[in-house]
């Protein structure tokens, strides 16, 4: 064990001040210290993506990011995408198109999809498949996840057009 360090970061819009060990992983701090249990641990080797969160506007696997690397950063987890009364289009689309089964990959998958659609608001099926290739799902075979994301993209684009 080494001396603890003072970590300041913004998580889901809220300023957090924490004492952490330099070796603590971001997923651990999110889950154990901030009680944000949406992101999950599936592999601890960056393969499965169940722990995906946004760090300064990029998707990261929080199981292999040190909490210290989030010093001063903006972090968004699935809990930050919506409120129970006002779900994100992606969350609704995943339900509508049966894009989840056991739900374990879902928070990471939706968080990744959320970022993907900001990077590419109008993706092709191929681009969606490539864009979520860092997130594994064992239940759905991806077909309905892809469908959910494409449907959400279409709905978000339609809403944007209507607003313009």
């Amino acid at each position: 064990m080494s001396d603890k360090m003072h970590l300041k970061m913004t998580v889901n819009g809220k300023q957090e001040d924490l004492l952490v060990e330099p070796r603590e992983l971001l997923i651990y701090v999110l889950r154990e210290k901030l009680n944000l249990t949406g992101p999950h641990v599936g592999c601890e080797t960056t393969h499965c993506g169940a722990c995906t969160v946004e760090l300064n506007g990029k998707s990261v696997k929080s199981c292999t990011v040190l909490a210290a690397q989030a010093q001063g950063a903006e972090v968004t987890t699935v809990e930050g995408l919506s409120t129970p009364d006002d779900l994100h289009v992606l969350q609704k689309a995943f339900r509508e198109h049966h894009g989840l089964q056991c739900g374990f990959c879902t928070p990471g998958m939706i968080t990744r999809a959320h970022r993907l659609l900001q990077e590419n608001p109008n993706p092709t099926e191929e681009e969606v498949r490539f864009g979520i290739a860092g997130n594994l799902c064992r239940c759905t075979g991806y077909q309905n996840i892809v469908k959910s994301i494409l449907a959400a993209a279409a709905e978000m684009n339609a809403a944007k057009e209507a607003a313009e």
């Binding site: 249990t37 992101p39 999950h40 641990v41 919506s82 509508e96 989840l100 739900g103 879902t106």
Partner: peptide
């Protein structure tokens, strides 16, 4: 029928064993 489970899973509000504290 759309699944009732999905409402909590999509919001990261599932309760898996590692979430038990």
């Amino acid at each position: 029928r759309k699944r009732v489970e999905d409402v909590r899973f999509t919001q990261g509000k599932g309760n898996y064993v590692d979430d038990v504290k």
